[in-house]
């Protein structure tokens, strides 16, 4: 993927910020077992819940976006942890059986 691609989360984050939108960046910082996206993968989120990139195979993005919107309004970074999906508890999780930690921070001015 080229750096200029509109699918690039960091380029998108910069473009969003330049057009005055609030932006959070989520980053996979640790993985255990089989994780869908490697450490270092990014998801960029704006204050409206628009997002580009991925931190999993689509399994936990919804939860990350919700948390990111909160991080945007509070300004305090957050560490999120997701484990195996537990269907009975309706818990958000990874169906692949892995575990990931995702760091969510607001893009500062």
């Amino acid at each position: 993927m080229t750096v200029t691609s509109s699918l690039d989360p960091l380029v998108t984050a910069q473009n969003w910020a330049e057009s005055g939108r609030d932006v959070a960046i989520a980053t996979v910082v640790e993985t255990w077992g089989s994780a869908p996206r490697p450490i270092g993968s990014h998801l960029a989120i704006d204050g409206e819940g628009n997002f580009v990139g991925s931190v999993s195979g689509g399994c936990v993005e919804g939860a990350v976006i919700t948390e990111a919107i909160e991080v945007i309004s509070s300004g305090t970074p957050k560490m999120l942890e997701f484990g195996v999906a537990d269907e009975t508890a309706w818990q958000v999780g990874l169906s692949c059986g892995g575990k990931i930690r995702v760091y969510v921070e607001r893009l500062g001015r």
Binding site: V11, L107, G108
Partner: peptide, 25 residues
């Protein structure tokens, strides 16, 4: 991350220079 750092990072990526960010978690 601050906007200026992100812009510098994207600039380095566009110029094909390897970069790293170091975050105190």
């Amino acid at each position: 991350m601050k906007f200026d750092d992100l812009a510098r990072l994207n600039g380095a990526r566009q110029e094909r220079r390897a970069s790293a960010t170091i975050t105190d978690l």
